[in-house]
């Protein structure tokens, strides 16, 4: 339904401000965003420029050589490949479980919804270091899982579970699930319930309403959520460092080792810039599908 008549208030009149609230002039606008731009310019873009300068400070040829060295490094290959694989698995699990969870919450009563929301917000507030520590307490040699398995006689020796990829996946999915559930849940909440009633009146069964109405209307939001989860997963540092050990290192861990342990700032800079480029490409794709900013609003 679109109204053909549009009321056009005069510029500058108080009526013009009815739908938007007060609007101040352009110079005040520039003044208000300038502190943000100053800080981001020096301390967000500054570091990125410093990385690029570190790569190019001995000319383009030397920069090419640096890139060549990184690209030829077998360790870099395996770490980069592992980073993509882990991020992809985390994304698939988070979005599938996240969608199911969001849908289940959406169909539940208001009480269940509020309690579930609070429990989903909880990990967002607790420190990632603390949550990762909690997983070591679950999976360590004398952790809960080994204790329970030993007690019930399912194993004779405590299992070594830490320092392996599955445990990293468990920790990362826990960290990323809220980022999948919350935007998808918000998208579901914004659905027009009349559409569902219309679908039911037209004779659709519950499953049909889901596949023909709910899913098509929410898949765009789910796609943007998936890309964001993937992008954030690519940059994980703490979870693979603590739960994965050196054998499950991801790209952030490798960059950190290069710079801190081997004093190879330039190699680390090349890898950082490559990671940044991948991130930017993915975000560009996400922004073509839907609003990225909307996914962080609550």
């Amino acid at each position: 339904m679109q109204s053909t008549y549009k009321f056009k208030p005069q510029r500058g009149s108080a009526v013009a401000e009815v739908d938007k609230g007060v609007v101040l002039s352009k110079p005040i606008g520039f003044a208000s965003v300038s502190p943000l731009f100053a800080v981001l310019g020096v301390f967000f873009f500054g570091p990125i420029i410093a990385l690029i300068l570190a790569i190019f400070d001995q000319g383009v040829g030397a920069a090419g050589q640096l890139l060549y060295d990184v690209m030829r490094d077998d360790l870099f290959h395996s770490v980069a490949f592992r980073t993509f694989r882990v991020a992809l698995i985390v994304t698939i699990i988070s979005v599938v479980v996240g969608y199911t969870m969001a849908y289940a919450m959406w169909r539940s009563s208001q009480t269940v919804r509020s309690i579930a929301l609070a429990l989903i917000m909880f990990p967002l507030f607790t420190s990632i270091v603390v949550r990762t520590y909690a997983w070591t307490a679950m999976f360590s040699r004398f952790g809960i899982i080994n204790t329970v398995l030993l007690k019930f006689g399912l194993i004779d020796q405590p299992l070594t579970m830490l320092n392996s990829e599955p445990v990293v996946l468990i920790g990362m999915v826990q960290a990323m699930l809220p980022f999948a559930i919350l935007p998808i849940y918000t998208t579901l909440l914004s659905l027009d319930l009349d559409l569902l009633r219309a679908s039911a009146i037209c004779g659709a069964k519950g499953r049909q309403t889901f596949t023909k109405v709910v899913l098509p209307l929410t898949k765009q939001g789910a796609a943007v959520a998936a890309i964001l989860v993937f992008v954030i997963s690519l940059g994980f540092y703490i979870t693979p460092a603590i739960l994965g050990g050196p054998k499950s290192a991801m790209i952030s861990n490798m960059i950190s080792t290069e710079v801190i342990t081997f004093y190879n700032l330039k190699g680390g800079a090349v890898m950082s810039v490559l990671l940044l480029l991948v991130t930017l490409c993915l975000l560009f794709i996400a922004s073509k599908i839907g609003s990225v900013a909307a996914h962080y609003r609550r």
């Binding site: 301390f43 570091p47 990125i48 420029i49 410093a50 952030s252 950190s256 950082s272």
Partner: peptide, 12 residues
């Protein structure tokens, strides 16, 4: 990714 701000911040 935070590692970019870390390495970049370090060089800066």
């Amino acid at each position: 990714p935070p590692i970019i701000l870390a390495t970049g911040g370090y060089s800066l």
